[in-house]
Simulated assay, not measured.
Amino acid sequence: MGGLTNLDAVFVAMAFCVPGYVFLVVRGHIVPGHRTRGTESIIRLLSVSTLNFMLWAWAVYLVLGTDDLPLWTRPAIWTFAILVSPVVMGVLSGLATKWGVLSKIYRQMSFHPVHVIPTSWDYAFSKPEPKFLIVKLADGSIFGGLWGTKSFASDEPAERDIYIEKIYKIDKDTGVWTGTDRSLLLKGEHIRSIEFIPFPEGE
């Protein structure tokens, strides 16, 4: 009867920390604005790790209790349980959230769930398609911008800023846009409003 070796004890400890972290990192790349910190992040990490371990405990204890399995079996099971499984769970959870699967189920049950994306800033800049922007600053000045694949918006709540890859001057009298060869990094505190203009069809 196989026992719990010192190395297995290390893996058990990792099983209650690493999977939750991997899950949250993978999911955070799909769903914007869901990075948590402090006590809440620790609780989420441990909760996901515990759920993951519950799913694969049968396989872990199967290899621990069997002596005649190939040598590669233990590291394979631990690798799957600690790394592969939370990656798959993170991707599935992120896609389900992005596609609104749970929201649709809740609405079918006559519930009204809170939106999964916490702020309108995160929601507005989570859309992948390129668009034009009209940015109005706190001092009243206005300019245009191209929001494309090279642009970026921070999802850090304490440090809202955006990087606009191409800036346009807007003539106050004619409204004509003139392109420049400049890009801009702009702090959220300097922005009064942003208007989003979709690309014309065919562009």
Rank of each mutant, 00 (worst) to 15 (best):
P86T: 11
V60T: 01
R107V: 02
G38K: 05
L46C: 10
Y106C: 09
S93H: 10
L102G: 04
R35C: 00
P75I: 03
A124P: 00
V60K: 05
L69D: 02
P70R: 10
T119W: 09
V114Q: 15
V84T: 05
I77S: 05
K98L: 12
G140K: 09
A124Y: 12
F132D: 03
G28R: 12
L83N: 02
K131W: 00
P128S: 03
A76G: 13
S93V: 01
D139V: 04
G94S: 10
T66C: 03
I43V: 15
L46G: 06
K98A: 09
H29Y: 15
S120T: 13
V116T: 10
R27F: 01
L137N: 10
R74M: 04
P128Q: 06
V60Q: 12
L102K: 14
P32A: 10
S120I: 09
A81C: 12
R74T: 04
P70Y: 13
G38A: 07
A57W: 14
G38Y: 09
L133V: 03
I82K: 07
L62V: 00
E40K: 15
G28K: 12
V135Y: 02
K127G: 00
H112D: 14
T97F: 08
R107N: 10
R107L: 04
P32I: 03
P113V: 05
G33V: 07
L62G: 11
L95I: 11
A138S: 14
A81R: 03
D139F: 03
F125G: 03
P113M: 14
F53W: 10
A124R: 12
F132I: 01
H29E: 09
V48I: 15
V116W: 14
P75W: 11
F53N: 06
W99R: 11
I77C: 08
V135L: 06
S110E: 13
L51C: 11
W58L: 07
S93L: 01
R37C: 00
F132N: 05
V60F: 12
A76P: 01
L62D: 10
A57I: 06
T39S: 08
L92S: 11
I117K: 05
A81Q: 04
A57L: 05
T39P: 00
V114K: 12
N52P: 00
Q108N: 11
A57F: 11
L55H: 03
T119S: 15
R35A: 08
P118Y: 13
S93G: 13
S120Q: 14
V101Y: 08
M89R: 05
F132H: 07
V88H: 06
L95S: 04
Q108H: 10
W58A: 07
